[in-house]
Design a binder for these strands. Sequence first.
DNA 1: AAGCCCGATACCGCGTTGGTATCGTTGCTG
DNA 2: CAGCAACGATACCAACGCGGTATCGGGCTT
Lengths: 295, 295
Amino acid sequence: MEFRLLRYFVAVVEERHFGRAAARLHMTQPPLSRAVKQLETDLGVVLLHRSATGVGPTPAGNALYAEARTLLEQAERARARVTAAGGAVTLTIGTLADSGGETGTRLAATFRRRHPEVSIRFREADFTDPTTGLRNGLVDVALTRSPFDDTGISTRELRSDPVGVVLRGDDRLAGRDTLCLADLADRPWFQLPEGTDPVWRTYWNGATPVGERPAGPVVRTVHECMQAVLWNGTVGIAPLVHVLPDGLTWVPLTDMPPSPLVVAWATEHGSPLIRSFAHIAIDAYYRSAHESLER
Amino acid sequence: MEFRLLRYFVAVVEERHFGRAAARLHMTQPPLSRAVKQLETDLGVVLLHRSATGVGPTPAGNALYAEARTLLEQAERARARVTAAGGAVTLTIGTLADSGGETGTRLAATFRRRHPEVSIRFREADFTDPTTGLRNGLVDVALTRSPFDDTGISTRELRSDPVGVVLRGDDRLAGRDTLCLADLADRPWFQLPEGTDPVWRTYWNGATPVGERPAGPVVRTVHECMQAVLWNGTVGIAPLVHVLPDGLTWVPLTDMPPSPLVVAWATEHGSPLIRSFAHIAIDAYYRSAHESLER
DNA sequence: AAGCCCGATACCGCGTTGGTATCGTTGCTG
DNA sequence: CAGCAACGATACCAACGCGGTATCGGGCTT
């Protein structure tokens, strides 16, 4: 029973779908199937019941899910305590699903040049937590999206991305330059579960077409949303997408407010290193805006 | 940060010696060195300060040691809860260092033939806990040695092993057929730390030659004791040793009471499976005694 | 009945793990 | 002080495990 397998299992349970879980873990589905089976044989217990529509946890699977969550979190805290005890200087950057993951690595590179002694770690958070762990100290600085409940959190806007939908190339709407929410009223849609940040939730659930509840199944994460696009031919809402698999197109939505990418940190924990990272981030976008002006 | 590395690190810290830790982990020293270094680079912290005489934890190492201990124990409990929730039938056999480990596998083989649906796990306990985890439920049935405080624990004696010392072949005492404790009065000796089962502790510390405190460094575990033999040319006390590396001999001690190998279980948890294992164990020794009579 | 989506399986290349052999360094000892 | 012995580190190697691609079998859907 290794942490790797626990991480995998948690992802599968949360996504209720091997393929989506694999996407979330940045891997493919077959090794994930094998890993879960390995965990099952190791424990001598069936953890998931598989069906053609997806997977669900057995009672033992539910038990392991709870245990694994606490174990993984405790491990993360343990790591933080140990590195602190060792006087190691670490900056943990939280990203939202993979929104900002690409920019995160880019900013981290320049940060590393400026502070070679600091080791950098990434933590990719669920789409249900826009703070990516700022509030409970799992993350020092976050690259996330507004708006969310920012009491006690300082944010600086880096850029503002238009929100659009991802469509298969053969979709009847794929040729359009722009779309509005009403065009998509009959499609499966994604909706955040209860208990998430209310500001955040109303913003994204406000994306539900024509004020109605989603017509299709409720989709919970951006990963899932992306995968819904990839495999169901249905739509997903997403900010500007950088790399898009073949056969997919991205079409902006005219009636969704743009989604700002921000750098955020817990105000009371604002250390020089965090300030430095924030400045690097802002400078990068200031300069890029500047350069784009010069061009 | 995987459980494997945490287990390794804990062993090294407890043994304060890479070689002994490797022996305890049933592996060799170089991969262990590498694994610890891997953990250090992963955390970005120096965990141990190395010297020619051994190793010791840094502050960060101490922090990680505490964290790792709790994480590993929680993982063990989590496993137990999950398998219980899944209705899996598991028998966990505790062994004492590797006393009875070899007999344990032998008995487990026949047990598995009789109960194919039961999955068997081993847990090798520190020499400081003669119950190998019976009291806190980590183990269902133990192969251990008497005497220890057996309130609430049922035991059945399997066989009684003479206690002797392991010597290098070139030791001046290696040729002797028997030895007594006085012959070894000036050697490093092993002694159990405070806090261990008092009955158990007085038994083994009673092995201290001529009633004196040990002349040499205090050695804490059987592994360490065995390794002291292997690498220091000093003596270790040990029950009958089955496989002995080349160049070593085992000489019985005349003035140590024999050490009984017993099968033990928590009386209140005595399930049919545990009884079955105990019977298999007793039968095996009854038959082997019987066969040896016939020969 | 056909098509599709999902998880399972087969197979493969590569990285990691654990092994053996050996080295450099450091205390100890005669 | 020189020799030695013990410790951890390093070099190198074989084998296994992990993640990848390609494909299959089996339920739902239409």
